[in-house]
Design a protein around this nucleic acid. Structure first.
Length: 757
DNA sequence: GTTCTAGAAC
DNA sequence: GTTCTAGAAC
């Protein structure tokens, strides 16, 4: 397989591999291994005797010794590189997605290596179960189950991911050798790129992809275009790990090359190729067996009508059930495998991750044509960036099941710049998931029909693009000449095809979409696509007439209570001409009340002006009165009075909240941060600002996603449960910025607060 | 396996 | 604003 340098040989030649005299780039070494594989020990052993300066990045301790986030790890690693340090990433990193962000740390500023601690599962489990005091608290009985589960998802790293060197360790001796290699590495040394110590069974082979791309290399000599570019050192005995001296079978070697075919001339010398994901089988829960039948049928039908184009079905995992089902069924149906293939990898990184150049990719979209939702849709929108979102919106707002739309990818999009993708075709398949709109409730007769239509629409749209590209080539003779005319012709063809797609859609709606139409005419159906469309229309109508159309349907409750408090006797605890006081329906602390203004049309802090000051003072006085009353009843309670910079409910309301935050309703980061960052504007400060400036300062909603910090001692915590258990016992005093009358205490605080107004 | 988060939907 | 749940992480 790819490996050419056995571990034992590597041990003998470590010193000779060091290229002395040239300044080495900083290194990012990504450890890959299950819990118990010895990642932390590896790091500590390297750091103990290292000649370079290393920083170990460990998510379990990144936040002041406590568990933190992946983002914190990435930031710390970037900071260390900035300071010229080398970085060891001490996380499991067993899956491609888990390590991909860390690989991106490389490039011009650093080389990225992987060290794979691929020790037997029983060794990892045994160590994990026995250890105590583990930073990540993974020890004892639960460790075995976790390790087993993680190992099932293991995907060993590949040079295609962006590593310049990958070292596989299968036993303790291998680990020792690797430790020596990295600890011996001096400031000006560098290690040769390539793969070290890989067993023949390690590498993933994607059978047939070479044949598919017609890039068979009978000599096994292949350009190294997949690996990042490195300067070859003439003294280096093995410039690249996957070159000569490989005793592994040539067929296997060739198949690895298939993952990185030379693509420089593929786009113009070979047939246009569409890469597409399986539609509807993920979030929409379409039965995979049935879906694979539909794919094969749709592909076969398409090939019978259109030639000179190719299709690749892409799924992230090489263990994908869809890929194997489709492979088997396509073979049975004698689908032309020189034109249809499967590929395991990231559809948004076909070129940079796999060396495949497909300039048209399909997206398993949602009906709103919006990012999010996870899976392929999220990945493609994320990879396409804002430019793809805008380009999509220019084409359509929504899409019906069974149809597809073409979106030319702007040249500013990373998908275009990085991957060479020129078109994304959004496809919407049938939904079998009751939790998603327009569920077909196990009606697979209709489901298969719609899925076939979806693929058929996708392939036809792709054929339109391919025709336009062929026309473009024939027209210009040379793709480099007369680019303007070529692009114009191409664009016209695409627009035409888009039109025909819309026509198809209209026709289809008559048959399949009849339910849709019925529902959209009925009222009161809050679920499902048509109901939502109707709501969107209403919303957009409102926006034409009112600047305050952005309030969600849930956001009017307070307004209703303020306008008609007599109808809400159970919620309201005090009524005056200027305000009503009520218990928060979802209190975020032991005591949490709202003093709500009754002034119609005053909805939020941003709308407060000088003329509202008397009312603000009355609201504050009422809140203070209630806080004092609660504190007298329970002297442990301390209160803050204030406004959210941007409220979720309309009708101006003052929060009066005890600082214990002891409530089951406090469940989200944004709950905490809305009361414990500057997003919460203390009532006394707001009044002062209005007095002085006539306006209140509004703080950014980004504060709601800030890291979680204790409101007493300011320590950071990785998640809300941990924070809540900390604040239950934190004895630190309140910080000084709250000592100017913002807090209301049982005994002395109230007079301070009053005097501060 | 469980815990936690974040996005979709209302 | 909440609920639901898929996905990430260990």
């Amino acid at each position: 397989m790819l490996s050419s340098i056995p571990m034992a040989e590597e041990a003998d030649t470590v010193s000779s591999l060091l290229n002395e005299g040239k300044e080495g780039k900083p290194l990012v070494v990504i450890l890959v291994g299950a819990p118990g594989s010895g990642k932390t020990t590896f790091c500590n052993d390297v750091i103990r005797v290292a000649r370079r300066t290393w920083t170990r990045i460990c998510q379990d301790t990144i936040a002041n010794g406590k568990a933190g986030t992946k983002a914190q790890c990435l930031q710390s690693a970037a900071n260390a590189l900035q300071e010229g340090k080398n970085v060891l990433i001490d996380r499991c990193n067993l899956e491609l997605e888990q390590r991909s962000e860390f690989v991106k740390l490389g490039g011009a500023r650093a080389d990225v290596h992987a060290v794979v601690l691929d020790l037997p599962a029983r060794v990892c489990i045994s160590r994990s179960v026995q250890r105590t005091g583990h930073e990540g608290n993974l020890q004892g009985g639960k460790a075995a189950a976790v390790v087993n589960r993680m190992l099932q998802k293991k995907a060993l790293p590949n040079l295609n991911e962006g590593f310049s060197r990958i070292t596989f360790c299968h036993n303790d001796d291998d680990v020792k050798t690797a430790v020596n290699t990295y600890s011996l590495l001096g400031l000006f040394d560098s290690l040769p790129p390539g793969i070290i110590g890989q067993k023949s069974g390690d590498a993933k082979v994607q059978q047939g992809i070479m044949k598919f791309f017609k890039k068979v290399d009978t000599d096994g000599n292949c350009s190294q275009n997949s690996a990042p570019k490195h300067e070859n050192n003439e003294n280096n005995p093995r410039p690249m790990g996957i070159e000569k001296g490989n005793e592994v079978g040539k067929d296997e070697q060739k198949n690895d090359m298939l993952l990185n075919p030379s693509v420089s001339d593929f786009q113009w010398n070979d047939a246009p190729t569409l890469a597409f994901p399986s539609i509807s089988t993920s979030d929409f829960q379409f039965n995979m067996d049935k879906a694979s039948d539909v794919i094969v049928e749709a592909v076969a039908d398409f090939f019978s009508k259109v030639d000179k184009v190719k299709l690749i079905l892409v799924d992230l995992s090489s263990k994908s059930k869809m890929l194997s089902l489709v492979k088997v069924k396509a073979s049975k149906k004698n689908v032309d495998t020189t034109r249809f293939s499967t590929y395991a990898g990231d559809i948004t990184r076909l070129y940079t991750g796999g060396g495949l150049h497909c300039n048209v990719i399909a997206n398993a979209s949602n009906w709103r044509l919006k990012p999010g939702g996870g899976g392929v849709n999220a990945a493609i929108f994320s990879a396409g960036g804002e430019a793809l979102e805008i380009a999509t919106k220019e084409q359509a707002d929504t899409i019906c099941p069974g149809s597809s739309i073409i979106v030319p990818v702007p040249r500013t999009s990373p998908l275009s710049q990085r991957e060479g993708v020129t078109y994304v075709i959004h496809v919407l398949g049938p939904n079998m998931n009751p939790q998603r709109p327009n569920c077909l409730k196990d009606d697979y007769v209709k489901g298969c029909k719609v899925l076939y239509e979806a693929y058929s629409s996708l392939f036809n749209n792709f054929a339109s693009i391919a025709r336009s590209q062929n026309y473009q080539k024939e027209y210009s003779g040379d793709s480099k000449s007369e680019p303007t005319k070529s692009v114009c012709k191409s664009f016209e063809a695409v627009v035409e095809c888009q039109r025909s797609s819309s026509e198809q859609k209209s026709k289809r709606e008559v048959s399949y979409g009849s339910d849709c139409n019925k529902k959209s005419k009925s009222n009161g159906d809050s679920g499902g696509l048509p109901g939502m469309l109707e709501k969107e229309e209403q919303k957009s109508e409102r926006s034409d007439h009112s600047a305050k159309s952005s309030w969600g349907s849930w956001a009017h409750a307070l307004h209703q209570i303020a306008m008609h408090p007599e109808k809400h006797n159970r919620d309201v605890i005090e009524i005056s001409d200027d305000f009503v006081v009520l218990n928060d329906l979802y209190p975020k602390a032991k005591k949490h009340i709202l003093v709500t203004s009754r002034l119609p049309g005053l909805d939020c802090l941003a709308e407060i002006r000088r003329e509202h000051l008397p009312m603000l003072q009355k609201m504050h006085a009422a809140g203070l009165k209630w806080a004092e009353q609660f504190s007298r009843h329970d002297p442990s309670l301390v209160f803050r009075l204030g406004y959210h910079s941007v409220p979720s409910m309309r009708q101006l309301h003052l929060h009066v909240i005890s600082q214990d935050f002891d409530s089951t309703h406090l469940r989200k980061k944004k709950h905490w941060n809305s009361f414990n960052t500057p997003f919460f504007r203390d009532s006394i400060d707001v009044q002062e600002e209005i007095k002085m400036n006539g306006l209140a300062t509004i703080k950014d909603e980004k504060l709601l996603s800030s890291e979680l910090r204790c409101h007493h001692c300011k320590s950071a915590h990785p998640n809300l449960p941990r924070l809540k258990s900390h604040i239950a016992t934190c004895k630190a005093p309140f910080p000084s910025h709250l000592q100017n009358g913002q807090l209301v205490f049982a005994l002395s605080g109230s007079s301070d607060a009053v005097s501060a107004i």
